[in-house]
Amino acid sequence: MDFRFSDDQLTLATSVRDYLSGTHGPEVLRHLDEAGPRDPAIWQGLVDMGLTGLLVPEAHGGLGMGLIEAALIAAECGRACLAEPLVDTAFVGVPWLLSQGQTDGLADVVAGTRKLAPAHAINPWVADGDGDALVSVDPLRKLTVRVERSRDTAAQGVSTSLDANGAGDDYLLNLGALMSAAQLVGLADAMLHQAVEYAKLRTQFGQPIGAFQGIKHQLASCSVAIEFAKPVVWRAAAALQDGLASAAAHVSHAKLAASDAAMLTAETAIQVHGAMGYTYEVDLHFWMKRSWALCGAWGDRAFHLKRIDDAVLGGSLPIGPEHTFA
C-alpha cells in the first residue's frame, strides 16, 4: 500500500510540463484561434519525447507504461491547455485498440503520423483536423455534419478518420472519462494559478486585491476542491489499470470531482479577474472553454453521478471504512 508516485513518474511529468510551458504558451492558442496554421514542431516534440508511444508495448516500439503515468501526463496537457490530440490518440485510442487486440498501425501512432479520434456513442461529436468545428458521429442519424461550438475549445487537431470506433464500449468510455478528469485537474490548477497571479498584481484600495479575505477565501476553496479531486483521479487510474470490477464507479467519481473542481475554479477565476476576466485579452477563457468541453465530453455530470449512484445506492460497490480500496 503506497499512495505515491515514483520519482521516475514525477520526473516524467515534470519534463512534459517544462516542454509545454516552453513551447505551448497562450500565444499558440491565440494563433490557432485566429485560424493560423498549426506548428508541426509542437507535435513532433511530443512524439520525440516518446509520449505518442507511452502506452504502446515495447514490442511495438513504445514505452510500455500504464494508465497512471498517462493520467499524470494528461493532467500536464490540461495545465497547458494543449491543442494537440495527444490524449485522445495516445491515452484513449491506443489502450482501447490494445484492449481489442488491434496492433496494426501502432508503429505509425508511435511515429506521430497516425492520430486517433476515438468515437463513442456518448459523445455526439469528435473534433476534426481544422480545429474550428466538430464532426457529428451520431450513430442513429449516421450523418457527418459540421457544427460550430464556442471557439478555441475545438483547437485540438484530430484527424476525422473514425478508425477507433468503440460505439458503446465501456472500457473506451472509462478511458475517455478518466483522461478527461485528469486534464480537468490540470486545467483547474492552471486557472487557479492565473487567478492567484492576477490577485497579486492588481491593486485596489491601496493594496493587492489578493490581500483581501474576500478574494483569499474564494481561491482557498478552489484549492480545497482541486487538491481533493486529484487523489480521486489517481485512484481511478489505478483501478482502471488494475482492472477492478469497481473501476467504472471510480472513473465516474474522478470525472465528477474533477469537473466540479474545474467549474468552480473557472467561475472563481473569472470573478477574481473582475472586468478583465470578461475580456478576450486575458488568457483565462481558453482554459475555461476547454474545461467546459471536457466536462461535457465522455459523459456529462448527470451521467457520471448516475453511475456512482447505481454503484453506491444500488449496492454493487462495497462501502464503509474497511472498503477504501474496494
Binding site: 500500500m1 503506497d2 499512495f3 487538491e227 481533493f228 487523489p231 480521486v232 467519481h253 449512484d309 477504501t324
Partner: peptide, 28 residues
C-alpha cells in the same frame, strides 16, 4: 438528498485517498 448522499460517499472516499497519500509521504 439523493445526490447529497452519493456525494457524501465520494467526499469521504476522497478524504481517505488523500490521507493515504499523506501517510505515504510521511513514511517516506
Amino acid at each position: 438528498a439523493r445526490e447529497a448522499v452519493v456525494q457524501a460517499w465520494g467526499a469521504a472516499q476522497a478524504y481517505a485517498y488523500n490521507t493515504y497519500a499523506v501517510a505515504a509521504k510521511i513514511m517516506a
